[in-house]
Design a protein around this nucleic acid. Structure first.
Lengths: 234, 234
DNA sequence: CAGTGGTCTAGACCACAAG
DNA sequence: TTGTGGTCTAGACCACTGG
């Protein structure tokens, strides 16, 4: 296994520190030498050590505090990173042919939970869009979305049968913050039919809300066909 | 909203670049000025600009290539980070009382899928552990785990009715790589009973496999009680 | 070939928090 | 008070890759 970076590169130091943690030279809870000492040991600049240790701390393996020093995490909180691309690219990335069907697009007053989530007035109409994305002709995910026309007035002019709201929004509307939630739900009759699934079959649902500054942009729930897995490596 | 970092700090530059992207001063696909020019504009060292742009690239908002320069991502791939702590801490972190019950711990030959996933011989016995974690006395997650005794011989000596395999392994066995998958499954009769759920109710399942070097350590599936959500912010 | 990002250095000052 | 990490600088060389 020839994968050694030079020991004076930050990646080399990253590897070496990781090795010492894995070999339990430095055990969970131990304080490791400070940056200056490690720089002396490795024969490099302190900034180089800092870069390596900072990344390990961001990964949750080390805990760093000024004056207290750097310790090996007792209860390492693993951080898994999920990539959330545009649906079209996700499907194409699996080598499948992408297609898309708009089901409906209308102005409606949203149900109270949606209104509350977005913090809007009681009689604000939003654009309500429903669509299905297909991979090789098979239903892949059902998109149900509410778009704030106050934040994105152009949404009323877009031909959503040509480009999905998912893709149009990502391309055209920046956002500063958002939140994601994943949960398992039993398929409603409607979702089951759209996905070609059994009623009550377990379905993974991702709900995402995005804002730009304080302005709510959109809330969407993506219901993935049975068998869908979110996968990641650490 | 007073949250401004000085414009010559890397965080200040991070904010300013983000602002220009959001305001579409720099649009998706545009090439932005190189590091030297930005350093001159902001009146700081190139390393400071580099730090800011590197973080934005890691977040998926910029794409950087030597010689080609830095461009605003056309299809920003959002990266959501999930924190995966020890179950006990996750429950305590919600302000609930943690408790735990071991259901069974035995040496068994694993089913073929598990054997294949771990790359083990056909007649290798693994430790098979099943347990339930409770929050305020209510079932929170069912843990079903196979542990490679060759990698972790001490597992046979641990009193798993006192400490969960989840916690003991995280504390005592380092790993170098792992993968996670999340999916929705209909509750089997057994899982439903353990979780106090309806049979066939949708359940979120996380499956995790870990290795140390090339040596497989453990494979575990965590079936969360209905209503469980994975949540994250970007 | 030459322009751009990637990294390293030696040194400096600062911010924070433990004792 | 003082040790530690956090950051910034000015400069340098290198690695990659577009033209």
């Amino acid at each position: 296994m020839n994968e050694g970076h030079s020991i004076t590169s930050w990646q080399g130091i990253h590897e070496e520190v990781l090795r010492r943690i894995h070999l339990r030279v430095w055990k969970p809870g131990d304080t490791i030498p400070n940056e200056a000492d490690l720089a002396a040991e490795f024969g490099c600049a302190r900034a180089t050590v800092n870069r390596a240790l900072r990344e390990l701390a961001e990964a949750g393996l080390l805990e760093r505090r000024r004056k207290a020093g750097t310790r090996v995490a007792l209860n390492p909180v693993r951080k898994a990173t999920l990539n959330i691309p545009v649906v079209r690219r996700e499907i194409e990335g699996r080598g499948a042919a992408y297609s898309y069907a708009l089901i409906s697009s209308a102005l409606e007053i949203p149900p109270p939970p949606v209104r509350a989530r977005l913090g809007l007035g009681a009689d604000t109409k939003l654009r309500h869009v429903r669509a299905v994305h297909f991979a090789d002709g098979r239903p892949y995910v059902v998109e149900e979305r509410w778009v704030n026309r106050e934040a994105v007035p152009e949404i009323d002019e877009v031909d959503l049968s040509e480009i999905s709201a998912n893709e149009w929004l990502i391309r055209n509307v920046p956002f500063t913050s958002g939140d994601f939630a994943f949960e398992a739900r039993n398929a409603t009759p409607e979702i089951a039919e759209l996905l070609g699934a059994r009623e009550d079959q377990a379905v993974l649902v991702m709900t995402r809300t995005t804002w730009n500054g304080g302005m709510p942009i959109t809330i969407v729930s993506m219901s993935y066909a049975p068998g869908y897995r979110i996968h990641t490596t650490i």
